[in-house]
């Protein structure tokens, strides 16, 4: 049984992606901020998909090709948000 906070984060994630899809970027940001705040207060880990596809700096929901660039470098993926923030994720193989 997931806690209410975990369920709220899950819903907010869905809502944020839906808002980003319809071009409502600022609304999506607010949903991301609220989800982060909930995780913080309730000591929960955000889902991996949430952590990867939101900007650490400006809280935007990252949509590759629209507001994010995804490039592979040797040993890591670089995701660049439109605000200029890079996030690097290692990979092997």
């Amino acid at each position: 049984m997931a806690s209410i906070a975990a369920e709220r984060i899950d819903r907010l994630h869905t809502l944020a992606r839906a808002a980003a899809r319809t071009g409502d970027d600022d609304r999506a940001r607010e949903y991301v901020r609220l989800a982060r705040r909930l995780a913080e207060r309730n000591r929960l880990t955000l889902p991996p998909a949430f952590r990867r596809f939101t900007c650490d700096d400006c809280d935007a929901v990252l949509v590759p090709g629209r507001n994010a660039r995804v490039r592979t470098r040797s040993g890591h993926v670089v995701v660049t948000c439109d605000c200029g923030t890079h996030a690097r994720y290692p990979y092997t193989g």
């Binding site: 209410i4 369920e7 819903r11």
Partner: peptide, 17 residues
């Protein structure tokens, strides 16, 4: 999976409803 019951609603997510 995500369930909002009438009892939990005041503590649950209102956004999107």
């Amino acid at each position: 999976m995500t369930t909002i019951t009438p009892e939990s609603l005041p503590r649950h997510e209102l956004l999107g409803l």
